[in-house]
Design a protein around this nucleic acid. Sequence first.
DNA 1: TCGCCCAACCTGTCATGTCAAGTTGGATTG
DNA 2: CAATCCAACTTGACATGACAGGTTGGGCGA
Lengths: 244, 244
Amino acid sequence: MAAPRGDGLKYERVLNALRSRIADGTYPPGMMLPSQSQLVAEFDVSRPTVIEALRLLRQEGLIESQTGRGSFVRGKVPALNLERAYPGQRLLDLAESESSAELLQAGIIVAPVRVTTLLELPAGSKAFLRQYVLSDEDGPIELVSAWFPIDLVTGTKLTSPEPMDEGIRRHLYGRKRLRLDYAMERTLARSATAEEAHALKMPAGAPVLNLVVTGHDADGKALQLVDAVLPGDRHELRDAYPLT
Amino acid sequence: MAAPRGDGLKYERVLNALRSRIADGTYPPGMMLPSQSQLVAEFDVSRPTVIEALRLLRQEGLIESQTGRGSFVRGKVPALNLERAYPGQRLLDLAESESSAELLQAGIIVAPVRVTTLLELPAGSKAFLRQYVLSDEDGPIELVSAWFPIDLVTGTKLTSPEPMDEGIRRHLYGRKRLRLDYAMERTLARSATAEEAHALKMPAGAPVLNLVVTGHDADGKALQLVDAVLPGDRHELRDAYPLT
DNA sequence: TCGCCCAACCTGTCATGTCAAGTTGGATTG
DNA sequence: CAATCCAACTTGACATGACAGGTTGGGCGA
């Protein structure tokens, strides 16, 4: 069921109302929430609907519940601005036509050792490369190389020199019923190669962030590799998480 | 309702059976689970009971479900290669005496702009710095600078030139009842400064990964900043996560 | 005044049933 | 061969109802 955002679903309406009351101090820490029966009456919904809203509040750490006793607001409200970063997923999902991508090349060439290793291809073998530059108003900001085993791209639009109008991941699913399950990222700092420096209009040897991401299916097989080169002076990766 | 352990509740019986089948390979990664209707028939329970068991499997990351499509076993879970990285937490928790740390300096000095900005101190003000180098058998691998507002370290062992025998976070809680709630990380690539190059025994200007981490309390206040400089040719940050 | 009992409340679990919306694959048509 | 349609499947959401077990506080008796 495709739900509208926010309050589309009844349990979300209850959830958001309770969240707001906790956040604004209407329900201060330690206070018992209205009982499930009271919430049923107040929101004119069924008890399982209220139970689902309360379960999500517990999951968010905002309240705690105890059979026979009630639900209570917890002492500390987690910082709402915590957001983990998924730069690899962003690369795997990039839709070229929705970005500033300028395609540099698309074709089958002998892949570097790192690519064949990570894609579990024989050393020295060829792979399919789709390479482009992303830019902003100040110039090139990212050089992206997407690598695939050759058999994976036959019958897809990836072989075309036209910009992709949808994300690669979505395209691979639509044409080949291939599903990526997880991503593995590797981040390192090194000097730009001459070719990279040229493509990114930066001094040769300048430091770059290099993100190498592999997209894997549920069996662990690497289906796709994306290599992003980011000028060091124009990029900073951000991440945030609760401490345990 | 106080439930017996394990299989006392009906949804737990379903949950544990499905967990076992996933763990022993009966349901390998990528395989679609029996539908909810099929599980209802197999376990002779109601559909909401099956739904609860599946919800818990999703919460554990073992399966993924999609309306209209089915529930599927996820790739290699739990696996070491599917583990999110917390390099900032590692830095905030570093116990010097349990690592290869060689303390370079500990004292109050005028802090760089970036430090005062992130610690919300007046520009040009002093802060407490504790700086050391980590090494392996091949030489220095990491230069770590831990910065604190001065009032935060008074009355702690941080002011001592002796190695800390416990993590800084634990120490701050023990002495000052200060609790770090979350971390924010910033990762960038740049060239090593002359000082850093010297401390890390690397060529001046060589590329480095620079991790800047702030530890915040529950109110969002930055209590501590750790700046780690990692030679680019000796470090690669790893991360992995399910794709959504 | 204290201890016990019990009613009244609470949350958790489970069932049956219905409706909504998404996905898939086969059939059909152009 | 590609596009469209639709039946049959799937999961998600919501309702009503019932029962189990925990907690609490008031009333009563010793």
